[in-house]
Each structure stands twice: as structure tokens, then as C-alpha cells.
Design a protein around this nucleic acid. Structure first.
Length: 423
RNA sequence: GGAGAGGUGGCCGAGUGGUCGAAGGCGCGCCCCUGCUAAGGGCGUAUGGGUCAAAAGCCCAUCGAGGGUUCGAAUCCCUCCCUCUCCGCCA
């Protein structure tokens, strides 16, 4: 959510900022609601003050044994008037909030202009794609004989699911352990285990709701849970309604979790293989930081995700997303794209975003700034470190050999009982 | 799932219809005093919102959440959430 004060004081400026994303803010509609809200709030506050004063007068009068019927009648009238005024105000507040919840974050000035992914900017390219002496196969063809089973998954759950078995399942698990260990040992993260079912409120806090409900899986039943689309949701919500001490920052958390996505808007996209699934595993990084440190933290976090790809010997590039491609809650985003030989191109495997105070404002996640002594909003960042399924895909495709076997990166050996290849 | 107890400020804790945003304590900050230290004394110390160009001031809200009763609710009633204890069941 954007700062309501900013919205009130510089509506045109906000509209101009959001226009970079291609988002059209209806300023006149917003200004109109705001004007009515202001009047309604002043009116309701005034009535309430009158009612309170009147009620106090009743107390005094009774204490002195005086006649109170006149005051009681006045109180009753004020009460009725106030009830109506509050209903009006509530309606306007609801309307205004709904509008505000639909607004995406304001982009950082360093975000390049552009409408869609074609305008994204490559920041750096690491590693060299391997030259194959044979026609490289895709991960589905390589994985099949090794225990990657889409048919079995289809019988159980339908399209966009996979069953892994044998050594392949073990590599999948090894990747998780390897990534977690690296982040807690080398990068200073606190390992965290989180719920996979969350309340709507948690999703509102991180920005998936109310706008993107169609991307989520909802669980039937009384408490009305949603399956998490990423561990960013529970991790970031950990600081909801907290006032953190300055010493508590930065907070760096890492969690492994399955992620569940309906992929409602992706019909027909990446239907083959493990690239786009309803369920996939991910190791997620979250930083909770002081505002002045958030952009340094974004570089740091991106570096942590890169370290995983480096250790796995995967060629990749770092992309700065352009204005039109940055997600709803992000102020700036770097994507990491890994080389996939079968497609002859780089594909997203990690996304690292600084959300500034967009999420913390919804979460009321604050810290006490020693400089002011006041609670102020923290900045939140999240990034994949990295997507496990796609890492597995990349390892299979980049490590494949002519005979159908797959050479494993040595970093995984400790987690594979010394196994160096899959065959 | 059954029975019971409870949720008040950074923390502890008092408060069963009126001057209670809330006693007292702890903690924290500033000051005073004591040649250091310990002890002592004074003052201050919630959050959000509105009004305002801004500050001050003023106003409103908040005692787990949401409704209700009432001129007036931390206090009474209802619903829900959470915590704890015992029992049952289970991993």
C-alpha cells in the first residue's frame, strides 16, 4: 500500500509515478472520494465529541443530584445522528481503502523504463553456456529414464504436477539442503520453518490479495485458508504488528517450502515439463531492514541467490526488470535467469525484490528509529534463493551427457553420498 | 473434541457503568543529589487518525477482534480468535 499522506498531498505525482508501469490512476475519482471522506470524518468526529461532552455532563449532574432528562434526550438525539454519520463515513473509508489496495508500488528511480519484458536490462552475465557435441535434450527427455514421472502425477493430480523418484528425488532434496546450508552458513540467514496454509489477512499483507486471488489455491473449510504461493508470505508476515528494536535489524530469514500456484493466467504457457507447476519447492530469502539500507540489501540478496547458481556451476544472467515488468509490490526487482540448452535461452530461476514500505505498511511492521525515538515502517525484501524445481531442470539440461547420463555439480556430492552422476 | 481459567501500555499488574488513555511497579530518557559505585529524589515516557501550509494546540479512536445494550462501556450481553491447565485423541 502507498502512503495515504502522499496520495492526499501529491496525487498527480503518484499518478505520474504509476504511469511508468502503465498503470492508470483515476485521480479525479480518488480526489472526489477523499474530499467526501474528509467532510464525513470531520462531521462524525464533531458529533462524537458533542456526545462525549453530553455524557460527561450527565455524570456531573447525577453526582450533584440534578435533573438530567434534558441531557438524556439530547444524548439520544446525538446518538442517532452519530450512527448515521458513522455509517456514511464507514462506507467512504471502505471505498477509499479498496481503491488504495488496488494500487501497485511506486518504482525506484533506477528502474529502467519499458512496457514489458523486452525492455528489461541485462546487468551482467556469468558463466559460459556449454558447447554440446550432440543435440541437447530437454529435461523431460533426460529425466524420464531417471525417475521424472508426469504420467503418474497426471493420474493423481492432473497437469502441472510431477512425481520424482529414485536418485532424481534425492537430487531434489539435496538441492534444498545445499541451498539452506549455504544461506545459513555463508550468508547469515536464520533458518525458519513456516506454515503452508495462511489466512487471507497474511496474503493481504504481502500484496497477493485482494488483487490476485485467482492465482491462489483456496482451501475449502471453516477457517478459509489459502495455500501459500511462496514462503515470502509467512516469512514476511512474521513481523506483522511488530515494533522491532534497532538491534533486531536487519533480520535475514530463509525457509524452504512448497509453493502452490493456480497459474490461472498461464494457460498454454510452459505446459511441457517442470518449468511451470501448480506445486514446486523453493528456498526463499527475506530481509527486514532499515529503510536506508534496503537497496544495499537488495544487491546483497541478489548476490546470495547468485552464489547458489555459481556453486551449481550454472550459467546465468542478472536482469533488472523494467517499469512494466516489476511485480505489484516491488519497487525494484532483479531476476536471475539460468541457461537452458534445450530452449537455447535464459529462463527465470530467481526473483529478488525490494518492496520498500509497500508491504510493511499493510503489515504495520515497524522498528523504533533511535534517531527519532518513533516507530517507523521497515523495508521488506524477498528473493528466491532459488527455485528448486527449475534448478533441477537446469542441472539436468546443463549436465547432460551423450549417453543420457547427467554429471552432477560437485557441490551436491556431500548431499548425494558422493554420487557424481545420474544414470 | 470435553471441562475450566484467562487476554489491559515496551513488560508486570490494578481497575465490575461516569473527571479512566487507564493506579502502582519494572524498564527506558532527561535532570538533581551523593567526591567513584551502590542507594535516593524530581520530571517525562503508547499508537493510529483528523484538522492545519507546518508546528503548537484542539478533536477522534484504541484495554484480544467484531457486534449489541446505554445519555455514557476496559467494566454488562452476544459471537469469534488466541493463550494456559486437566481429560480424550493423535504424529
Amino acid at each position: 500500500m502507498l502512503d495515504p499522506k502522499l496520495l492526499r498531498n501529491d496525487l498527480a505525482g503518484v499518478a505520474a509515478q504509476l504511469a511508468r508501469r502503465g498503470f492508470v490512476l483515476d485521480t479525479s475519482a480518488f480526489a472526489a472520494i477523499e474530499e467526501r471522506r474528509k467532510a464525513a470524518q470531520v462531521h462524525a468526529d464533531r458529533l462524537r465529541a458533542e456526545r462525549n461532552a453530553n455524557a460527561k455532563a450527565v455524570g456531573f449532574a447525577k453526582a450533584k443530584g440534578q435533573e438530567t432528562s434534558g441531557l438524556l434526550a439530547a444524548g439520544e438525539a446525538l446518538g442517532a445522528e452519530l450512527t448515521a454519520a458513522e455509517a456514511t463515513l464507514q462506507g467512504l473509508l471502505t471505498e477509499s481503502l479498496a481503491l488504495q489496495l488496488g494500487l501497485p508500488n511506486i518504482l525506484h528511480s533506477s528502474v529502467p523504463d519499458g512496457r514489458d519484458e523486452t525492455a528489461n536490462v541485462e546487468v551482467r552475465r556469468i558463466g559460459t553456456p556449454r558447447q554440446f557435441l550432440f543435440e541437447p535434450k530437454d529435461h523431460v527427455a533426460i529425466g524420464g529414464p531417471l525417475g521424472m514421472d508426469f504420467e503418474g502425477a497426471g493420474r493423481i493430480s492432473g497437469a502441472r504436477f510431477v512425481v520424482l523418484s529414485g536418485a532424481l528425488a534425492r537430487v531434489h532434496r539435496a538441492l534444498v539442503q545445499f541451498m539452506l546450508d549455504m544461506h545459513i552458513r555463508d550468508h547469515g540467514y536464520r533458518e525458519t520453518y513456516v506454515p503452508y496454509l495462511v489466512h487471507a489477512n497474511a496474503l493481504l499483507g504481502t500484496g497477493q490479495l485482494p488483487k490476485f486471488e485467482q492465482d491462489l489455491f483456496a482451501v475449502r473449510g471453516d477457517p478459509g485458508f489459502y495455500l501459500i504461493p511462496t514462503a515470502e508470505v509467512p516469512l514476511t508476515n512474521l513481523v506483522r504488528d511488530q515494533i522491532l528494536a534497532a538491534d533486531d535489524l536487519p533480520k535475514k530469514m530463509v525457509a524452504h517450502s512448497p509453493c502452490f500456484r493456480s497459474e490461472a493466467g498461464a494457460a498454454g504457457k510452459d505446459t511441457r515439463g517442470m518449468i511451470r507447476q501448480h506445486q514446486f519447492d523453493k528456498v526463499e530469502l527475506v530481509h527486514i531492514v532499515r529503510p536506508e539500507e534496503s537497496y544495499a540489501a537488495l544487491e546483497q540478496m541478489t548476490g546470495h541467490a547468485e552464489a547458489v547458481l555459481n556453486a551449481l556451476e550454472l550459467p546465468y544472467r542478472v536482469i533488472a526488470l523494467c517499469a512494466g515488468d516489476v511485480g505489484f509490490a516491488g519497487a525494484k526487482t532483479y531476476d536471475l535467469e539460468v541457461w537452458l540448452p534445450s530452449q537455447g535461452k535464459y529462463r527465470e530461476i530467481s526473483s529478488c525484490s525490494n518492496c520498500e514500505s509497500f508491504q510493511s505498511r499493510r503489515l504495520q511492521a515497524r522498528w523504533r528509529n533511535p534517531a527519532t525515538g518513533k516507530p517507523e515502517l521497515v523495508h521488506t525484501l524477498n528473493g528466491s534463493g532459488v527455485a528448486v524445481g527449475r534448478a533441477l531442470v537446469a542441472i539436468l539440461e546443463n549436465g547432460q551427457q551423450a549417453d543420457g547420463s547427467v554429471r552432477l555439480p560437485s557441490a551436491l556430492a556431500p548431499y548425494m553420498a558422493g554420487m557424481t552422476e545420474l544414470r
